[in-house]
Design a protein around this nucleic acid. Structure first.
Lengths: 370, 370
DNA sequence: TTGAAAGCGCTAACAT
DNA sequence: ATGTTAGCGCTTTCAA
């Protein structure tokens, strides 16, 4: 290890130590740290040198005890092992870091009880704000937050009547769009490979949207046509395999997210089925892979990073404004339907007039071959 | 909102409040929380009721100020938007949560300077331990940690001489194994699609390993044969595209991770090349997708969750033992080489005797067709 | 075993 | 504009 270029910082030095050593009071040192403008420039400069030379690092606990703020934001997501949530957290993180906040992350494993425990633990740590995912939470969780006036925001869903701010999109309406598009190009026989809908309002809403759109046009989605699976590639594959074993497989399979869709697609490819010739597949989220696999996956684009950033903005505003989170803050993002290679009219279908409003197919990636 | 099932917790109640209200001293209440065994059972029971009825949540800052511990662990990873790091963090999180710790995560974007800033910020928050990724860190970063006696561990690499604990594997040796396998089956003309090696020792080590193995057998890897790209699918695709434009493309492409390999593979598929017939591809990490895409990607399996869990164990032990991290703690995990469909002998190669020690091809996923 | 009291290191009134 | 002082809520000696 090279020689320390700077003076070796003492194990831990406090403002009081420095006050004694430098002749500048601890209060002024503290002001230089927190409100530099109100300290006369020459003294401030001197103080800054003292602080820097000592390699001073503030003691966060003492700081928050005295100031009643921790400069820490909490986030509870179902799992980090998901391109979607990881991106949302990254977006949140970048924004809160820029504002001098640190991020405390926890995962709930899709369990409201675990989410509650995590929120409690975050509150103990004194977080100044909390980001949650979804519409469904234990009553106690919400109450803990509200009682203490801690700003929080829920993401990945849209609910104008929620009593707290939300940043997301309408899962029902989005799912309807996908189903409508498939019906527009002639599909009538569907199956759904959904996520686990228990305690997952997003997954449930998507199924509801698919069903509603289908029924609106006189079709039906039997209970047996909806397979619920954890969000993994292998589950998508096995679900598709079971669908293909049916005497009369669906002509289109609507998947709860891109991971399931990718698995479903790969199973078809392994079975040497023609996608989309024999079967169409759709996803949800638009993770990077969806644009580059072959064929590309038709899906809805979720602007994950933006969601995290906007959630951060909502939280930061609420914290700054001493407001406990305006219930009027309901961001509703429109998801773009991205048409790629996994969807086409069903085999033998007579060409169907595409509705005027139907989205146009687009090259998924710059390099993509038609 | 339904009626609160429990007594509505007062906005914030302190131990002192409860002491006054209940007649039990704050000190005893505190003992019930932290060392229940040393309080007489009947008093303890009474105290527990008081605490529960009040919906008491300890004030973390006050607690850590007094106890000099925060029950918080920090982790700085290059990015959360990576299946590998996300899994590692999940593993770490599960283990530290089980021990009553909360996780503070930060990302460095592969920059040592940003990493240093994040570590500093974590120290301010009083983390009891820190998980880092890789061997390369700013001197100041390590010093900050060591000076304060904060236990830390670095992951994803193996270095028996590191002055702090490490949990990982030997990237050079692992990369050599992949290259050796490819040479065993007859390949001689290679290209590498590596990650960005600047400030990324893992990426650099892998390139070194590839090169070393190739040169050991009399081959060579020219600088132009090593393409450095960010870890994204689209970069893997474009790198492969540029390789395929060469007059004499390589017969095997070694990729820095599975994301690059996936992109490289998809580009070949879009160009209707036969993989592995015309070109072989290897990855690194064994993310879920690698097992299920078609063809499956030959890669090295990194036990990501286990890495996070073991890092947690190292940290927790160091914290409990008041030890500042034994430098003797160097976990070296052997990565299994998983043979899948993206690799085969080069076209026109005469069959080569497979070395006795060579790994056997295995079915990548239960459902995989040969 | 329990209670009283002294801080932990900092910030924010309050004086000056 | 700066220094002095009083806590923030808890844990942990120290007495009892």
């Amino acid at each position: 290890m090279p020689t320390p270029p700077q003076a070796p910082p003492s194990p831990t030095c406090t403002l009081k130590d420095l006050a004694v050593r430098s002749g500048i009071s601890a209060a002024t040192l503290s002001r230089v740290l927190n409100h530099p403008q109100i300290v006369r420039p020459d003294l401030r400069a001197k103080a800054e040198v003292v602080l820097a030379e000592a390699g001073y690092v503030p003691h966060g606990a003492a700081r928050s005890l005295a100031s009643r703020r921790t400069r820490t934001i909490g986030a509870v997501v179902p799992t980090l092992d998901s391109a979607l949530f990881a991106k949302i957290v990254e977006g949140l993180q970048h924004r809160v870091h820029a504002a001098g906040y640190q991020l405390l992350v926890a995962s709930s494993g899709y369990s409201p009880a675990r989410e509650g425990a995590q929120v409690r633990s975050l509150i103990e740590r004194g977080v100044d704000g909390v980001m949650l995912v979804g519409a469904v939470h234990a009553d106690a969780t919400i109450r803990m937050l509200q009682t203490r006036g801690i700003p929080f925001v829920s993401t990945c869903h849209y609910d104008p009547r929620a009593a707290w701010p939300t940043v997301g999109w309408d899962n029902v309406a989005s799912a309807e769009r996908v189903a409508d598009y498939l019906m527009d190009i002639g599909h009538r026989r569907f199956a759904v490979i959904a996520g686990l809908t228990t305690d997952n309002d997003r997954a449930a809403d998507r199924v509801n949207g698919f069903r509603r759109a289908i029924e609106r046009r006189g079709g039906a989605l039997a209970a047996a046509d909806v397979l619920q699976r954890p969000y993994t590639v292998v589950e998508g594959r096995s679900a598709m395999a079971s669908l293909l074993r049916r005497p009369k497989p669906p002509t289109a399979v609507l998947c709860g997210n891109d991971i399931l869709a990718f698995g479903a697609l790969q199973e078809c490819l392994w079975q040497e089925l023609d996608v989309p010739g024999q079967i169409s597949i759709t996803g949800f989220d638009d993770i990077e892979m969806a644009a580059h696999c072959r064929p590309g996956i038709t899906t809805l684009h979720v602007p994950a990073t933006e969601i995290g950033e906007r959630a951060a903005a909502v939280l930061l505003t609420a914290i700054a404004g001493e407001a406990a989170g305006g219930a009027d803050d309901h961001v509703n993002l429109e998801l773009e339907l991205i048409l790629r290679g996994t969807t086409a009219p069903p085999a033998g279908a007579r060409p169907v007039a595409r509705s005027a409003a139907a989205p146009r197919r687009r090259a998924a990636a710059s390099m993509e071959k038609t």
